[in-house]
């Protein structure tokens, strides 16, 4: 089969998750110049918000419901935004003020990641206990969910298509366009760009640089949290789910050039498609060659790591640095 519709739909959800995460990772990178290794675990926290919503709103009894999204998207935006803000205020900013190098700050984000995964493990234990000891028979069925739950069974469908395949891309487009308008059309957004480019000058003009950076971290965390809501619809809930994903997120940001939010989003999307379809077609080809069923799902990061290598060799500044006008006219797509 050349084109697989279900695969395409799944990929839409997965690739938009990567798009959102690569974009928000790029935002924190532009602001603080630190590669944030905790970023994918931000998304995992967002994923856990879905389980909490399924539990607290009684969705486990009623089955698929839009409430999954209505409640968990804003909830995860706020909760994960707050986590990211705290990471900036409590850890990164004080360390940077003491003159710790970028390498040091990067290691600090690794430490934060380990702490966050630890907290997710504690929360998972806690939730398992609650579910297990519940008098509610339906709730007791959720006992395995905190460590390996497929929450996609609670999401609604639109004309037979799972909601995440449509909501994911929609969320990516809305947040990219919304963020673009915010940065270019509002005074605070302009101040954000100014403070990021030249904090010293911004400071002398009376712009509160610290506030600008805090807001950036909050928004970046919030977007990662919402990405987590979509993400958990395509994969198994687990405290360490961010650890494998972070490779793909960085791949997306690097492909985008780590300098532009728009290209970060595009990079994430591309890496998502590359991973999914790369795995799928390599399986088909290897299967045809060997005559056996080949399963390569666990090797998907090979494709994102490959994308990093190719990008750094061909255009180290990422997609953002390419002259698209020239490329399009060469291809005959633009006069």
């Amino acid at each position: 089969m050349v084109l697989n519709v279900q695969l395409f739909l799944d990929t839409m959800a997965y690739a938009s998750v990567l798009g959102l995460l690569s974009m928000s990772l790029t935002l924190t990178y532009i602001v603080s110049r630190v590669p944030n290794f905790a970023h994918a675990t931000f998304a995992a926290i967002g994923s856990y918000m879905v389980l909490i919503v399924v539990w607290l709103l009684g969705i486990y009894k009623t089955g698929p419901s839009w409430g999954v999204y209505y409640a968990s998207l804003p909830l995860s935006f706020i909760v994960v935004g707050a986590v990211a803000l705290l990471q900036y205020l409590i850890v990164l900013r004080p360390l940077a003020k003491k003159g710790i190098s970028i390498d040091g700050l990067m290691i600090a984000t690794l430490g934060i990641d380990i702490i966050l995964v630890g907290l997710l493990n504690i929360s998972a234990d806690f939730l398992e206990d609650i579910f297990q000891q519940s008098p509610d028979k339906d709730l007791r069925k959720l006992v395995t969910y905190p460590r390996s739950g497929y929450l996609s069974s609670y999401e609604p469908t639109i004309m037979g298509v799972t909601a995440s395949s449509i909501l994911g891309p929609l969320l990516l487009v809305v947040s990219t366009v919304g963020f673009y308008l915010f940065l270019t059309k509002t005074k605070f957004g302009t101040a954000m760009r100014a403070a990021i480019e030249n904090p010293q000058l911004a400071e002398t003009l009376g712009i509160n640089v610290n506030l600008v950076y805090s807001v950036s971290w909050f928004i970046a965390g919030g977007l990662a949290g919402m990405a987590g809501v979509i993400m958990v619809m395509t994969t198994k809930l687990n405290p360490t789910m961010g650890w494998l994903l972070i490779v793909s997120v960085f791949a997306g940001s690097i492909v985008g050039g780590l300098g532009s939010l728009f290209w970060g989003a595009v990079g994430g999307l591309l890496v998502g498609f590359l991973e999914q379809f790369g795995v799928y077609y390599t399986q088909i080809i290897l299967g045809a060659l060997t005559g056996e069923t080949v399963s390569l799902g666990n090797y998907r990061q090979v494709f994102s790591l490959g994308a990093i290598v190719v990008m750094l060799l061909v255009a180290p500044q990422g997609l953002a640095s390419l002259n698209w006008g020239k490329i399009l006219s060469r291809l005959g797509l633009r006069r």
Partner: peptide, 18 residues
């Protein structure tokens, strides 16, 4: 570095009047 290179002239002036 006495202006914001990535911002337009109008935006630079707006930031000066922040």
């Amino acid at each position: 570095d006495n202006v914001f290179a990535q911002l337009t002239v109008a935006e630079n002036l707006k930031m000066a009047a922040y």
